[in-house]
Amino acid sequence: MTPSLLYALTGAGLIALGLYGFVTRSHLIRRVLAFNVIGSGVFLVFGALGHEGGITDPVPQALIITGIVVALSLTAFAAAMIARYAEDGGGGLDPDAEDAG
């Protein structure tokens, strides 16, 4: 087992785990957490698959940095929106799950 493969498989595990968390927990903060876990899993797959012999492909590295900033932007907006929604009396759950349940 090479480190490349190990980390890529860990990334796959994080994606599966994050998706499971997203689907089974409907609190909005948990969904944003799950989004970030899935995101870092995707990045880990990206980086690890370009890694061999101690060198990681700089193109994925740069794109991952871009991706991290994009994920942060989305998280920041989501956090602000969740806070406003709660202030308006909406509670802390994803409206989608609420309607379904």
Binding site: A62, I64, I65, V69
Partner: peptide, 9 residues
């Protein structure tokens, strides 16, 4: 993974 730039970010 020796991706120090990413680690910093």
């Amino acid at each position: 993974l020796n991706a120090i730039d990413v680690a910093l970010a």
